[in-house]
Nucleic acid binder design. Sequence first.
RNA 1: CGGGCUGUGGCGCAGCUUGGUUAGCGCGUCGGUCUGGGGGACCGAAGGUCGGAGGUUCAAAUCCUCUCAGCCCGACCA
Length: 564
Amino acid sequence: MRWTSFFSPTLRDAPADAEAPSHKLLVRGGFIRQLHSGHYTLLPLAFKVRKKIIQIVEQEMDMIGGQEMQMPTLQPSSIWKESGRWDSMGDIMFRLEDRHGGEAALGVTAEEIFATVANEISSYKQLPQMWYQIHTKFRDEPRPKSGLLRVREFTMKDAYSFDLDEEGLDTAFDLQHQAYLRIFSRLDLDVIPVEASSGNMGGSDSIEFMVQAPSGEDDVMLCSSCGYAANIEKAVSRLDDIADSDGPAEPEKFATPGIRTIAALEEAGHDGKRQIKTMVYVIDGQVTLALVRGDHFINEQKLADATQANHIRPARREETVEYLGAEPGSLGAVNVENIPIFADFALQNRSNMITGANENDFHLSGVDISRDITVTGWVDLREVQDGELCANCGSVLSKVSTIESGHIFKLGTKYAETFGAKVLDADGKATPVVMGSYGIGIERAMATIVETHHDDNGIVWPMSVAPFHVVITVIQMKDDKSVEVAENLYNELTDGGIEVLLDDRDARAGVKFADAELIGIPLRVTVGPKGIADGVVEIVDRQSGDMESVEINKVISNLKERMK
RNA sequence: CGGGCUGUGGCGCAGCUUGGUUAGCGCGUCGGUCUGGGGGACCGAAGGUCGGAGGUUCAAAUCCUCUCAGCCCGACCA
């Protein structure tokens, strides 16, 4: 490709509203343009990178027995209603009606559709199956942001496995896990597999593949010693036991005028570790209490997971007053009936504690949780804090910001049962197939590579996904000899299967260098009169910046060596 | 959904407080001359419904009302 005929509108300045490095660089480099919030046009450079990422994903999926196919993106509501996700998906789903008034949605994910197709599998002899597609997904995100990192329309590789039993699922899950590690390694992304929440996907285990980056939106807890890694929505840590002194036979009410916070109670001499923090939520319309230790913080996703909630929100002040009789700051769960109460494990067996009395400006002391509070369920609600100790090995945990690059789920039989995907087993008995689902966002992977592969001058693509392998920079287009050498190299390299961008623009060297570095081509061949006088051209490595003078007839072998 | 900010040529911005000729500047673009190894210089040129609608006024980019869009923080996020 010749630069003079290539469409790559580079910009000197990044758009003012871009913040994330990948957003700025992809726009400046002429890879993408925004059409609308969360919707981007992929220009030729980005399209080339996307295609290479897709090829890598396809190769690795095919390697583990994946069969590529494609599902419709416009899907009838009926299929989503059957699984119950027409409601549970909420506002994330783009919904529309056809001319007959039929409800439909744009594909958010495709468990339902694949499970429907899996109806065609009728015998255990046809299992296992591993199917996947690489296709557009639509999600009406509350807040698209950071260029390609969070968008409303994107390409996703979603794979689905079908097995006869849990053991088969474990095998498929592990195959995908290994394939993911190979894919991200080939993309030169340092992924950390972490234990994750499954959200409204359902199912048991799920693992997310996270890449550490400041622009990331997900927090992960990492143990540097034993390798424990978990999304903060799932992470646990070691806690010291607390020995409570004996309390009174029943809770005692005491006045706490003006005290409305845990911190204020602490100042009044009541250690946060001895307090019960009472939070009021509305979960799918049901007012619910969540209790954690006074000095602890609740993680809402944990509460949502524990209650299998579709929709969860903090209660409004009026609701709190209506149901508990007091305002936030004086709340407690003692003597509360008819409202579900979920308590964090850290409160188990605790006694002689302090909590709100559900009467403004009063608290209770001497609360024995098992005696005085009707706990509906003991669950893990506490959000682990940076610096706490690993539950496995006792080393210090650190909280890091990450980008979610992939997520794999063990779904079990939920979708198969709903959609009647059953097979006859060896005994002739009908049994639902066991499913797994496995996703990777293609454009997010592209942006994540940029997040982790750039410097002050621009992007530094790994060879595996670079839009071109080599850029030939002609220093002076007026110098016939330079042009001749460059043209010959261009033809030979291209014939040799190397993807070359020939910078044949009549621009100054500085401009060409800057553009080549901005768009991040891994190798640059500089052809100029100085070198030609000595029979050489220069090869510059984008990553290291190292320059080597190479005899013209050895350029191809040199480049091929570097590309290995 | 709450809070904050921004819409002026392809990009980055000024002008708006205090209304007043042809709305400026830098970069980019086009033509030309010189130049030529890190975003060069000079000459010339094109390119703007000032986000949109309504209003106030002799007069609106500027004031008022409504509205649309985008960005950031939070909420939310399979």
